[in-house]
Simulated assay, not measured.
Amino acid sequence: MIYLGIPAWARECEQIENWSGLGPARAARLVQFGPMSFYYWNCDKYVAAYGGNVIYGWQIVAVPGLFAKALHHAVVEAEDGSLVDPTDPYGVHTGETTILLDNSLQPARDYPPLYSNKYLPFSEQGANACRLVRDAEEDQLEICRRLNAIAKSQGIEWSPEEYRGPDLTEEVHFLHDAYAETQQRISAAYDFCRSILDANKSS
């Protein structure tokens, strides 16, 4: 993982706010509660246990100096108006999640919605790195969408606790192989980012 959390007060956040048309960026305090990737369900359970409301938006992380990435996310608005993130963090963090609030997408809970991420290059170098990462990650996301569609068509129910994937039909075997290939591309794209960062440090 090469992503770092960007504090809501950081200079890059102003650029991200202008780019997204959302904002201002807010900080949500991270609490250890539920696993990464299950943010919608984690928030539901947190609200059931402690109160508050589930709200949605875009979590902001970045490869410093290269590009920012916005992932659809959910946090909890506590009764005092503060934000809490009950999901294990994505990338390196400082105890907070930076989020641009946006309730225009409110996903159902039957299957992961798999919304596309948003990417913002910070420089020409960043644009090249961003393109490699975005293309590989988006291809992988499309494979996940197809796997979910197969599961739905076979009547396989999904839940974060019980999901083990659809029956391994021939098409699913093919998709699993394609998924592994995209994982290799993502790793190669991350290595490319690291090579740029290392070169910039030594120059």
Rank of each mutant, 00 (worst) to 15 (best):
Q183Y: 05
A68N: 05
Y56P: 01
L147D: 05
Y179P: 11
L30S: 04
I156W: 02
S123N: 07
G126E: 01
S104C: 11
S123F: 07
V31C: 10
N200E: 00
Y163V: 08
A10S: 14
D85F: 00
N128S: 15
F38G: 05
P89M: 07
M36T: 12
R134V: 14
D139Q: 15
G52E: 07
E171W: 14
G34L: 07
E162G: 15
K45F: 10
D135F: 03
Y3N: 00
F192N: 14
A180M: 07
L71F: 09
I186Y: 13
W19T: 05
A129Y: 00
W58C: 00
V92E: 13
V92S: 09
Y90P: 03
E12I: 02
D102E: 07
D88G: 10
G57H: 11
R134W: 03
R194A: 04
A151Y: 02
G165K: 07
Q59Y: 03
I150M: 03
D88K: 08
L141P: 00
G23P: 01
R146W: 08
P107W: 03
G51Y: 04
A78W: 04
P7V: 04
P86N: 14
K118Q: 05
S159G: 08
R185N: 02
Q125Y: 14
L66E: 01
A10K: 09
H72S: 05
L105I: 10
W19N: 09
F67H: 06
T97R: 10
Q59I: 11
S187Q: 14
S195P: 05
R185H: 03
F192E: 10
T169Q: 08
D80T: 15
P166V: 02
T169D: 06
Q15N: 05
L141G: 15
G65K: 00
Y179A: 13
E77S: 08
S153K: 06
D167F: 06
V61Q: 04
E96T: 14
A78Y: 11
E17R: 15
Y56R: 07
H173T: 06
L132W: 05
P64S: 12
L197K: 01
V75I: 09
A136Q: 00
I60R: 01
R29A: 09
A151N: 11
A78L: 13
G126W: 01
N53H: 13
Q106N: 12
A27G: 03
L168G: 05
V133F: 06
Q32T: 09
A149M: 10
A62W: 00
Y190C: 10
I2V: 14
L100W: 03
Q32I: 11
E162L: 10
G65F: 00
N103C: 12
E14C: 13
T98S: 10
P24M: 08
Y179R: 13
E14N: 14
E157A: 10
L66G: 04
A62M: 03
L22D: 02
